[in-house]
Design a protein around this nucleic acid. Sequence first.
DNA 1: TGACGTCAAGATCCG
DNA 2: CGGATCTTGACGTCA
Length: 417
Amino acid sequence: MSIGYACLTVGVPNTDMKNCLLKNADEEKLTQLIEHNLSALQHIINYNVANEILLFRISSDIIPFGSSPVNTLPWKNLFQQELQIIGESVKRAGIRVSMHPGQYTVLNSPDQGVAKRAVDDLMYHSDFLDSLGVDGTSKIILHIGGAYGDKKVAIKRFAQRYKDLDECIQRRLVIENDDKTYHIGDVLELGFSLGVPVVYDNLHNQINYCDQRKDDFYWISQCRSSWKPRDGKQKVHYSQQNPLKSAGSHSESIAIDEFLDFYLRLGESQPDIMLEVKDKNLSALKCINCTTQKRNIKVLELEWSKYKYAILEKSPKDYKNIRELLKDKSTYPAVDFYRTIDHAYGQGLFQGNIVNAALHIWGYFKNLANNEERKRFFSLLQRYQENDGAIAPVKRFLFRLAEKYKQEYLLMSYYFL
DNA sequence: TGACGTCAAGATCCG
DNA sequence: CGGATCTTGACGTCA
């Protein structure tokens, strides 16, 4: 069983994706962007390898306008070497990659143009995975599409369009329940009739359910046999509701207790779990470290080095508690560790704590910074304290100092996110 | 016609 | 002028 995250990282250098507007998408621009994005992807994969994150969704934006007629670049040939090298690192590390066209790729549309673009888009995703040389367990996850006033007819149209797809797409295609139209019952029925594996998404099911009496584990076990050996391990999508946003919005971070409750009740089945969450790799590491058999406290110490100033800023009490928690090197208190981090992030922000954390960071530069920098720092801090200002400028300045004075320890801190 | 969701580009504002 | 912040774009469906 692997746990992974989707598309982007937070706090990892050189992993940002670039894009452009349609009107600017000429050959030169696209070449630059693809070159940049493939380099970013290589950095992401390297990060995943270093952190033993073995499940990852590649962004559909990796090749800008990848399925649009404006992109006439023969990118597979132009970047054959880069693609192959990325594919080799993926395979060497045993990482399972996937892709997920968004809600605007609609295979079952009555509009022929829309459907044709959906097929082109699936072909682009398939081409990309093929270009990495990854096998059929690297999936393309798709939603069924619209209802158009008659779900039965719309499902039939999906089935027909599926049968007309190229085999290279079919071997990778997986369908998923959505939060509006096709609940898990619909998707399972279609999946079994077509022989297509089904990804169960818990949050979508919470909003758009088939049967309120059935829980996540019932549906996950129903989906299991839609996955054949050639498809690889069953996959599920897991996310938590953001309490401050509309139904279906993903949470900022995965709350560890809620996740563990879900995870433990999966029992023997152990599907691959794709997290959909704003803090991306951070939550992936959290969930992995709380479920791994390798119980190495050094991993938590490394995590602590990144989290500590963010925690100090939010809750000095939790900061102190975690320091205590990590003292005994013969233990592996991962769950308590992340539980405390979750708690700290859930606290309200207080000016005194925020200033205290900023001064802690400043401590790194006290003897390095010149007079100008010293003046600047304290003036920014004062502006924050006095005029109901924002802390962001203070943090940005501190980050720049960390770059200038090469404070690697600070540069990787989640304090700056 | 605008909301939906997601991200970064582009536009604009500010010192 | 550079950097920070706000708005737009790209996609299709549905109310």
